[in-house]
Nucleic acid binder design. Structure first.
Length: 743
DNA sequence: CGGGCGAGCGCC
DNA sequence: AAAGGGCGCTCGCCCG
């Protein structure tokens, strides 16, 4: 039903007051909760009922208030078990518009239910889900809304211009659908023993207590520093480009002419013709748009004028392009190019142009290929080219600076809102239960003494300084110390691996010593003969395989990674596995579980569903991942063989993921649960503060300056003690003013 | 002109 | 013969 007046609204308030579970959905003017407005609110107390409260209605000119006050309804929702799809959006917009926070009343998010039950990435939106589950087709619905928007003079996504009745109908439908999803998913969570994992221990508490606040609060930016960096880096990039192009120009041959020819083909209409008129100084009448009129009569009239370029005029009347001189064509093209504001025709950022340069003009042989099998120009390639060409080294720096500028400077200027950056933290975008976020790829600052170009270092090390705690505030920054190795040692059940941490030894050094049978070196950082000190490359080598091998890395990949012959890599793998027998057993157990059951669980119960693994195993047996065996059986059949190969890759992926998942997912849960506990503890103690960012094994908490030491101790204690492994975790804390200070 | 994709590179 | 896991953003470029 549509709420038409106060009496209707009172009835609805009465209805929700009696209900326990209510689905909630707001319709808004857009998707940015800071800038947009609620236009209506929908609720359902069952999959077949529901109401819509219109708040703003488009009258053809502007949004008119209906006069209905939603706040008594929102108050009635407090204390209820609210269910929503992508609830963060609905509660943030509600909070923004009405200052009533429903986040603690969110009982279930059906998007997260869907993800918990099927983490294999697909579209988790309401409509894609209902299509996948029940074949519901929403195209007609979309059509009707679009038509209504268009009828009311709106464009593409101006949903707020849709007829209120239509909006109401679909809002209620979405509420009902959300209810249906909840009823559909709940028993599945029960069946898979995921109820307490989902509702009590992790998914929903993380969502309401950590995810929603992190996204809603945003992080203060040092706008002055960002803007200053932008100006400086642009100048440095331009200088580099000038310098590179000075060296390069003599080599380019006719590349630029050919490229412009393809960009601006000869044409007697359009931009080419317009520019031609200008360059040839034709006295043609102008249209309202400022363009030259190319009407036949105007061209003919122009021919009669003294000094007119007859050849050009003939061309414009459909004559042959041979009427135009080469230099005139060139002038036109360069003039058009200059209008783009770009500095050089040869684009140093274009892979096409660079490939042309290296592989066609300079006749260099590629050293690697892309996944698609194309010759590759990447940083490694340019590094090799730097031995031959001085400009190639500059090009590497140019690339790095452009990356920093585009991804870490321009982006945060563009996306800042009133000095804040609102990061996204998605709980449904990874298989393992990590967050999917746009704030997890900030470049790590270079440390003192690391060999790197000074410009690259300068700008790289600036990026984390953009994110500031702000006046009167501090960040508490805790990184778990090698969390993944700790979790890995714990999960493998291998006492040898666990002892590394119990003894306080260095993980990679110990593994290097055990695997390679090294003598006369120590894995203790304090020792004179510490491996990391006296033979760093050997430790680095162990870094390449210590976790890679357990996750399924083969001899081929290892040999490539650390540049040793394949047979040596094979014996290294063998030796590693022999050194840690329980690890090897765990690897086999995990694969076996995957093949037999089609799923694995993390220690806290999160499920990795791989039902296809069972089918593949039934059909092809254990040899499916043995390329040689499959080749012997199927290579004769040109149709079947590629399919079998693809299935082999799929199976290998399952088997490797069965191992990696248990480690990565538990690590994620440890950090997630620490974050929940931190926010709860601070709340309980009445200390102002919250986790404002999570980067896989790192939590950044924001608090008042005067509480910094106290919060630091609380955070550290929770991170170390909140979830206990068979070995102790470490999470040393730093207090800082920005994201860079702690390192 | 917007969407999708490949390539590259940033992170754990 | 095929050969380690999980992500997100930007760019150029192609396509509809």
């Amino acid at each position: 039903m549509i709420v038409r007046d106060q009496k209707d609204l009172n009835r609805c308030i009465n209805q929700v007051s009696k209900a326990k579970y209510i689905t909630y959905d707001v319709e808004t003017t857009g998707l940015n909760t800071r800038q947009d407005k609620v236009i209506g609110i929908g609720c359902s107390t069952s999959p077949t009922t529901g109401f819509y409260v219109p708040l703003l209605i488009w009258d053809g000119i502007k949004l008119q208030e209906t006069g209905l006050d939603p706040r008594p309804l929102l108050q009635a929702l407090k204390g209820k078990r609210l269910i929503a799809h992508n609830a963060a959006f609905d509660v943030d917009q509600t909070y923004h518009d009405f200052n009533i926070d429903l986040k603690d009343d969110i009982w279930a998010d059906t998007m997260l239910m869907a993800h918990t039950l099927d983490e294999n990435k697909y579209a988790y939106g309401l409509k894609p889900l209902s299509k996948a589950l029940w074949g519901d087709d929403s195209t007609e619905e979309q059509q009707i809304m679009k038509q209504s928007i268009a009828d009311n003079g709106g464009s593409a996504n101006e949903y707020f211009k849709c007829d209120m009745e239509i909006m109401a109908k679909y809002c209620i439908k979405d509420c009902q659908l959300t209810f249906k999803l909840y009823n559909y998913f709940y028993p599945q969570l029960v069946d898979q023993d995921l109820i307490s994992f989902f509702f009590e221990e992790e998914v929903m508490p993380l969502y309401t207590q950590v995810t929603i606040p992190m996204q809603r609060n945003g992080i203060p930016l040092d706008i002055d520093l960002i803007v200053e960096s932008e100006e400086q880096i642009q100048k440095d990039i331009n200088d580099l480009e000038d310098s590179i192009m000075r060296s390069l120009s003599p080599h380019l041959g006719d590349f630029e002419d050919r490229h412009l020819a393809s960009l601006y083909p000869i044409n007697d209409k359009g931009v080419f013709a317009q520019e031609l008129c200008r360059i040839a100084n034709l006295e043609l009448p102008r249209l309202d748009s400022g363009k030259y009129s190319l009407a036949k009569k105007d061209l003919l009239k122009c021919e009669e004028k003294e000094g007119s370029n007859i050849k050009v005029l003939k061309f414009l009347q459909g004559g042959s392009s041979s009427l135009l001189s080469d230099s005139l064509i060139k002038d036109v093209r360069y003039a058009l190019f200059r209008k783009t504001g770009e500095r050089y025709v040869f684009n140093l950022q274009s892979k096409h142009h660079l490939k042309n340069l290296f592989f066609k003009i300079l006749q260099v042989d590629p050293i690697s290929k892309t996944d698609k099998g194309n010759p590759q120009v990447d940083d490694k390639f340019l590094d090799a080219m730097a031995e031959r060409y001085d400009w190639a080294e500059k090009l590497r720096v140019f690339n790095k600076l452009n990356k920093i500028k585009g991804a870490y400077i321009d982006r945060f200027i563009r996306e800042s809102e009133a000095g804040l950056f609102y990061p996204s933290f998605f709980q449904h975008r990874t298989i393992s239960g990590r967050y999917g976020s746009d704030l997890q790829q900030l470049p790590r600052p270079y440390e003192e003494g690391q060999e790197v170009n000074p410009l690259v270092k300068k700008y790289t090390n600036n990026v984390r300084k953009f994110f500031i705690a702000g006046e009167g505030h501090k960040f508490i920054d805790n990184d778990y110390e090698s969390l993944e190795p700790h979790v890995f040692a714990h999960i493998s059940g291998d006492e040898g691996l666990k002892n590394i941490f119990r003894n306080g030894d260095d993980f990679y050094s110990t593994i290097a010593i055990a695997t390679e049978g090294l003598t006369g070196v120590s894995a203790k950082k304090s020792d004179e003969n510490y491996l990391g000190k006296i033979n760093k490359p050997l430790r680095q080598k162990a870094k390449a395989y210590a976790l890679g091998i357990p996750y399924g890395m083969g001899d081929f990949a290892l040999s490539k990674n650390i540049k040793i012959p394949q047979n040596q890599a094979a014996s290294l793998i063998k030796s590693y596995k022999n050194s840690y027998p329980a690890l090897t057993e765990w690897m086999e157990r995990s694969e076996d579980q995957c093949r037999r059951m089609g799923f694995v669980r993390s220690e806290v119960g999160r499920v990795r569903h791989m039902p296809n693994a069972v089918e593949l195993h039934k059909q092809y047996g254990p040899d499916l991942i043995d390329g040689l065996a499959m080749w012997k059986i199927y290579s004769e059949d040109a149709v079947i063989y590629p399919e079998v190969k693809a299935k082999g890759r799929e199976m290998r992926k399952y088997l490797n993921n069965a191992k990696n998942f248990q480690v990565q997912s538990l690590a994620a849960s440890i950090v997630n649960r620490a974050a929940i506990a931190i926010n709860r503890k601070l709340n309980e103690l009445g200390i102002w503060g919250y986790v404002c960012a999570q980067v896989h094994d790192q939590l950044i908490t924001r608090c008042k300056s005067e509480d910094a030491e106290r919060v630091r101790d609380i955070v550290e204690d929770i991170m170390v003690n909140n979830y206990k492994l068979s070995i102790d975790l470490k999470a040393p804390a730093e207090i800082g003013d920005n994201f860079a200070d702690a390192h």
